[in-house]
């Protein structure tokens, strides 16, 4: 399979701040890749460089065989972009907006087909200004698909959707991938990444800190077991509880979570500590780590 995207040592600096700090990866044709990361990790900057919306400081970028920094209309003809912050003329109707954008493409989809794809049949002749946030987002999605693109960038595509609309949009993205379209999506939602993507890249502080399938990431980084419980108010410092543990702990709102490779020993210590003080640990659970734990561990965020 040829590569739809090839990125080598991509750097984007703003003054002394390196928003993207030496990123290299390739995306095969037909692959669905999710770029995950906290705000400011550089995922939108990276995607905007790939789309040709933003210049790069250094590094080599090939998208559909061309450099997006200098590519022209022919490149954009094969691209579908669903931006986070792109508006439409809201005084036009849904149908008019789709008609406005479709004429520039060499193989545009039919307006009615698009409206059906994003399930806006009831709103087709309403002005965009009267639509809800989620419905406007579906207009965005329709505009991303309008040129029957080979490569689709989805920047947080289901933000603001209700759960049902989100699931239907996922089905839509899955249909696209079944047609062999390449999809690059950025998302905050691990569930979304896991649902849609063949491959998940985790970006933190401008670097790729993990790259693989969801199950691969879980296997590589998610070793260990998670112990969690609610802690009643106690008068002593928690070092007596936490310091002897072999795993790592984090806490919020009096709820402690421990990720450990020695669950038996750590659990024994915790229960001994609690019973010696006559405390009951609220909601004590022991489970294998979730993808979310992997992700939070990778990006170094406090949960």
């Amino acid at each position: 399979m040829p590569n739809a995207i090839e990125v080598t040592d991509l750097v984007k600096s703003y003054g002394s701040n390196r928003a993207v700090d030496g990123v290299s990866f390739a995306v095969e044709e037909g692959e669905v890749v999710a770029i995950l990361g906290p705000n400011g990790a550089g995922k939108s900057t990276t995607v905007e460089i790939l789309e040709g919306h933003r210049s790069r400081t250094s590094g080599d970028v090939r998208v559909l065989g061309v450099d997006p920094g200098t590519a022209g209309p022919g490149f954009r003809d094969r691209l579908g972009i669903v931006l986070q912050s792109a508006g439409v003329d809201k005084e036009l109707t849904v149908r008019e907006v789709l008609h406005f954008y479709r004429v520039a493409y060499s193989r545009p989809r039919e307006v009615d087909e698009l409206i059906a794809m994003v399930e806006l049949e009831d709103k087709a002749d309403e002005r965009v200004s009267t639509l809800s946030g989620g419905q406007q987002r579906r207009v965005d999605l329709a505009l991303g698909l309008i040129g029957d693109p080979d490569l689709i960038f989805l920047d947080e595509p289901t933000t603001g959707f209700d759960p049902a609309a989100r699931r239907r949009s996922w089905d839509l993205v899955r249909n696209l991938t079944e047609l062999g379209r390449t999809v690059v999506l950025t998302t905050h939602s691990l569930e979304e990444a896991e649902q849609l993507a063949d491959r998940v890249m985790v970006l933190a502080a401008g670097r790729i800190v993990a790259d693989g399938s969801a199950s691969q990431l879980r296997a590589d980084f998610g070793k260990g077991t998670r112990i969690s419980f609610g802690l009643p108010a106690v008068d002593e410092p928690l070092s007596g509880l936490l310091d002897p543990l072999q795993g790592t702990s984090r806490g919020r709102d009096r709820r402690i979570e421990i990720t450990t490779d020695a669950p038996t020993a750590d659990l024994a210590h915790i229960t001994a500590w609690a019973t010696s003080r006559g405390l009951e640990l609220d909601g004590l659970t022991v489970s294998s780590t979730e993808l979310e734990d992997v992700y939070l561990g990778l990006v170094g965020e406090e949960a």
Binding site: G52, G74, R76, A104, G147
Partner: peptide, 8 residues
């Protein structure tokens, strides 16, 4: 910005 991302 959206317009700039189209082949127009």
């Amino acid at each position: 910005r959206r317009v700039r991302g189209t082949p127009l």
